[in-house]
């Protein structure tokens, strides 16, 4: 089965079976010492990653860079389209075809939905979707799963509370599908205007576990094994005072954490803007910085697998 990874595009988490995801997580685990710099590797020596970021994303871009570099490979590309031929009106198809000829694998971040699938259509080399519009961001989902698996060992039956912007938040949808596939019990907490879309809820429901919905975090936090927090964007609210009210209701602080399980973990895809009080960083619950680090071994695993350097 793992032989099947070589040359594979990583466009959507839906392209992966449960076994394949488990394999990626297992390989990622082996990458941790290299990701930390405790061990050196030349596994991908001579390979080049084309890193096409049509939209800024410091975290994702840096972790792809580091992942490739730590495995002995090199990175070329751009971190914003200005200056690139794209700014002169070149199609994505043409940019991809050109970079395809220079590189062995391409990581793509793009503002348009479906851009990664289109790139995969034109490239012979594997495309790794680093986030396309409101669409998919599969490596984020994998690193989220990796973090939960690392902290909780088994995902079957654990209580995961997802809070924040569940309507537009791109990471939440694919993560909730993947978690449901692994048998986690999901609770969606959001104000009614930002609750998880019906279609998405149905999708999760069809995968086995009956998801729950709530508008109050206080009501559900005591039972949580994982609290996954996402950003609530100001732009979603026509009325700024409404935003303040909502943002305040879902803020994670020490007070909220009084009655939680001792080993409950808090995750956040970062950057945060006030959803989690800084005082929470010092508690053993805070796992968001580890989570951000986990992007490196997970992306190493994916790069190694699609390039065939890892099995």
């Amino acid at each position: 089965m793992s032989a099947g990874f070589k040359g594979m595009d990583v466009v959507s988490i839906r392209d992966f079976s449960r076994e394949q995801i488990e394999h990626v997580l297992k390989v990622a685990d082996k990458m941790v010492p290299i990701a930390k710099g405790e061990e050196r590797s030349v596994l991908l020596e001579g390979y080049v990653l084309g890193s096409l970021f049509f939209e800024p994303s410091t975290r994702t871009r840096l972790s792809f860079d580091v992942a490739m570099t730590r495995l002995g490979g090199r990175v070329l590309g751009f971190d914003q389209p200005t200056g690139a031929s794209v700014a002169k009106g070149e199609t994505l198809a043409d940019t991809v075809r050109m970079v395809d000829a220079y590189c062995d694998v391409i990581a793509l971040r793009h503002p348009q939905d479906g851009a990664a699938r289109l790139a995969a259509h034109f490239a012979d080399k594997p495309i790794i979707n680093a986030g396309d519009g409101a669409g998919q961001h599969p490596t984020q989902t994998m690193l989220d799963l990796f973090t939960i698996r690392k902290e909780k060992k088994d995902m079957e039956g654990i209580n995961v509370v997802l809070v924040g912007d569940l309507k537009y938040g791109r990471t939440v949808h694919s993560l909730s599908e993947a978690l449901a596939m692994f048998g986690a019990q999901l609770t969606f907490v959001a104000p009614p205007s930002l609750q998880i879309p019906k279609e998405q809820l149905k999708q999760v429901d069809s995968m086995g576990q009956k998801p729950k919905m709530n508008s109050s975090l206080q009501d559900v936090v005591a039972d949580a094994d994982v609290l996954y927090v996402t950003r609530i964007q100001k732009e979603r609210f026509p009325d700024p005072s409404e935003y303040q009210k909502v943002a305040g209701t879902y803020r994670i602080d020490l007070d909220l954490l009084k009655n939680v399980k001792r080993d409950m973990i808090i995750m956040h895809p970062l950057p945060r803007v006030g959803e989690i009080a800084p005082e929470v960083d010092r508690t053993p619950h805070a796992k968001y910085f580890e989570q951000a680090f986990n992007g490196v071994p997970v992306r190493m695993a994916i790069l190694g697998l699609v390039l065939g350097g890892l099995k």
């Binding site: 199609t91 994505l92 198809a93 793009h110 479906g114 699938r117 289109l118 519009g133 409101a134």
Partner: peptide, 12 residues
């Protein structure tokens, strides 16, 4: 979907 890449000028 107006945000879909196929609604941009791509040869697809």
């Amino acid at each position: 979907n107006p945000g879909c890449i196929t609604n941009k000028d791509e040869p697809v």
